[in-house]
């Protein structure tokens, strides 16, 4: 037996496999050519904006776009009707951000608070990707702020360097699902000249930011920084913002409540002087409008 039977068994096997293939071919032509494994693909749109609320998010601007940002922070809600719940006092920051590459962006801004200029870069050496890519996005941010208000005491020797502060940040973020993104942001702020001798020049903080999508165009966001040093009891507090991102046709509105006035990292991390527990909450909004300034090369 054996050899002949074995052969015929093999033969039948080969035949049937051909038949199966032929059958498959007529049913699904696409499977003939679409055999490639799913490609590695960068995960996008973890946050609606490049900022969670105050702090940087793991999201980058698309290359060739400019983001014009108008930020407002109002007075404390507990001022009541006389100051229209804080809306009488507005502090603002105007900013321009530019997307250079998919993983590199830069921005500049100016805040009314302390007449401060700021500039930063954000770069991601590792970006979250599907199909065997990195599970998280890892980004670094470096920034500088410059206080341009008149010297408090012009009679003494004032140095230009006293106007400057720097901040350094690492962002570790992950878009867990369509609806949920979370990031951790260890941050260091170095201020060249602090107001009081009791204040440290270097402040270390850890940020926790997240987004929970409610609908396709609306999401809840939160942005909290815990300070490890530099907190003086009764003077300054950990900044916490809770907001809603609303997307209309061409704008992203980030409406929120927070206890901070500052709109750059130095200001909101080291100089948040209001407290949630005392009801010293402010309303604020970020308005983002994105302009395309470079042609999309992929269209040819």
């Amino acid at each position: 037996m054996s050899i002949h039977i074995k052969k015929s068994v093999i033969f039948i096997f080969i035949l049937s496999s051909f038949a199966a293939k032929a059958q498959q071919q007529s049913d699904d032509l696409l499977s003939l050519v679409d055999k490639e494994k799913p490609k590695k693909e960068y995960v996008k749109y973890a946050f609606k904006s490049t900022r969670v609320i105050n702090g940087q998010s793991m999201e980058f601007l698309s290359p060739g776009t400019m983001d014009f940002r108008i930020l407002h922070r109002f007075g404390q809600l507990d001022q009541g009707y006389k100051n229209f719940f804080g809306l009488d006092q507005a502090s603002m920051r105007l900013g321009f951000d530019f997307g250079l590459y998919r993983n590199l962006m830069v921005g500049v801004g100016r805040s009314t608070y302390k007449k401060e200029l700021d500039g930063y870069f954000k770069y991601a050496p590792v970006m979250q990707a599907t199909n065997g890519g990195s599970p998280v996005t890892l980004a670094v941010v470096g920034g500088i702020t410059m206080n341009t208000s008149p010297w408090a005491d012009p009679t003494i020797d004032n140095y230009f360097s006293s106007r400057l502060a720097y901040y350094y940040q690492v962002i570790v973020g992950r878009k867990f699902s369509e609806g949920f993104s979370l990031q951790l942001t260890p941050t260091m702020v170095h201020t060249n000249l602090v107001q009081l001798s009791s204040q440290p020049n270097d402040v270390f903080a850890l940020g926790l930011g997240g987004r929970l999508k409610l609908t396709r165009r609306m999401a809840i966001t939160w942005d909290y920084y815990h300070l490890f040093n530099g907190i003086e009891k009764g003077v300054n507090y950990d900044p916490l913002g809770i907001g809603i991102d609303i997307e209309t046709g061409g704008h992203v509105f980030q409406l929120h409540f927070s206890n901070s006035t500052g709109m750059n990292e130095r200001a909101f991390i080291t100089e948040t002087t209001s407290s949630w527990s005392k009801g010293e909450i402010r309303f604020g909004f970020n308005l983002s409008r994105i302009f395309q300034i470079k042609h999309n090369k992929n269209r040819g």
Partner: peptide, 10 residues
């Protein structure tokens, strides 16, 4: 699908 505007693509 590629769009002229990145925002539209998003």
């Amino acid at each position: 699908f590629e769009f002229e505007r990145a925002l539209m693509q998003e």
